[in-house]
Amino acid sequence: MPGLLLCEPTELYNILNQATKLSRLTDPNYLCLLDVRSKWEYDESHVITALGVKKKNNEYLLPESVDLECVKYCVVYDNNSSTLEILLNDDDDDSDSDGDGKDLVPQAAIEYGRILTRRTHHPVYILKGGYERFSGTYHFLRTQKIIWMPQELDAFQPYPIEIVPGKVFIGNFSQACDPKIQKDLKIKAHVNVSMDTGPFFAGDADKLLHIRIKDSPEAQILPFLRHMCHFIEIHLHLGSVILIFSTQGISRSCAAIIAYLMHSNEQTLQTESCSVTQAGVQW
């Protein structure tokens, strides 16, 4: 039987923003995101596409119209769960289970996650820090919307993938030219690894590094890497959030981010390639 795993906010952010031609959220078997907070908290705001978990006779109900056996990612969150350990609650009743005036009480997300593990073929993820931490970091992914129509999911515009939490993102040219994305992610510097140019970057010479390289197997990116790593390090030192992008956000930008991670972390190509792949980057 699959178990429970903690899911960092960055991981859920990247899961929500996976895309090919369309957002992966259009696939009903891709993500089942479940909110076990109270109904009024859910109605006030929740993470996009999250389903509010219902109770009957004080027992949690399984989500309707979701084939849990086929879902790739099943993520549960409450207000602020940050561990898979069971909490100790004070109890005035002397008949408690451990004899020390305390009861072992699982947090809501863990309690519901255990129920789901009996129905899934994959691990159930518990969002670390819950809604409070996630919404504090990714406020732009909050909503009051409860029902999502297929055409609305088709039109959903994913954000760039987060590689270094809160510091480095990887995306495509369209995302790089979207003012809302720049504002939401607080992006202040760009590395453009393509032949494309756009008016959005006019006058940003100090904040834009443009590596003009064609999307071709014969293209040589190696001569640019030292300067690129230096540019990224300077802007990270200044506290800037950086977006590395190419036309489609795949081959050239991936090569650039892997090279930077190898330089920064002093790790091998295989190690950093795996870390980028685990973040959900296609290349």
Rank of each mutant, 00 (worst) to 15 (best):
P2Y: 14
G3L: 02
G3S: 09
G3T: 06
L6N: 04
P9R: 07
P9I: 10
T10F: 09
E11V: 06
E11D: 12
L12G: 09
N14D: 11
Q18L: 13
A19E: 14
T20L: 09
S23K: 08
T26M: 15
T26W: 12
N29P: 00
C32Y: 10
D35S: 04
V36I: 05
R37T: 07
R37S: 04
W40H: 11
W40L: 04
E41L: 05
E44W: 11
E44V: 03
L51I: 13
G52L: 00
V53F: 06
K55N: 07
K55L: 10
N58Q: 14
N58L: 10
P63G: 05
D67G: 00
L68T: 05
L68G: 01
E69G: 15
V71H: 06
Y77P: 01
L84H: 10
E85Y: 11
L87T: 08
N89Q: 07
D94K: 04
G99M: 12
K102W: 00
D103M: 14
P106D: 06
P106L: 03
Y112N: 11
G113S: 12
G113C: 11
G113Y: 15
R114H: 14
I115W: 01
H121Q: 11
K128R: 15
Y131E: 06
Y131Q: 08
E132G: 02
E132D: 10
R133D: 03
G136S: 14
L141Q: 14
T143H: 12
T143C: 10
T143E: 10
Q144E: 15
Q144D: 15
I146H: 11
A155Q: 08
F156W: 12
Q157P: 00
Q157I: 03
P158A: 10
Y159R: 01
P160H: 12
P160S: 13
E162G: 06
K167E: 12
K167A: 08
V168R: 08
V168A: 09
I170M: 08
N172E: 12
N172I: 05
D178N: 15
P179L: 07
K180P: 00
Q182G: 02
K183Y: 07
I187P: 03
I187W: 08
K188N: 15
A189M: 04
V193Y: 07
P199K: 13
F201R: 09
A202V: 05
G203H: 05
D206G: 07
L208H: 08
L209W: 02
I211Y: 03
I213P: 00
D215V: 04
M228T: 03
F231N: 07
E233V: 05
G239F: 09
G239T: 07
S240D: 14
I244L: 06
F245P: 00
I250Q: 04
S251W: 06
S253R: 11
C254P: 00
A255T: 09
A255C: 02
A255P: 01
A256P: 00
I258A: 07
A259K: 00
L261F: 10
S264D: 03
N265E: 07
E266A: 12
E266M: 13
E272H: 06
E272V: 03
E272T: 04
C274V: 04
C274L: 15
S275W: 05
T277F: 10
A279L: 04
G280S: 06
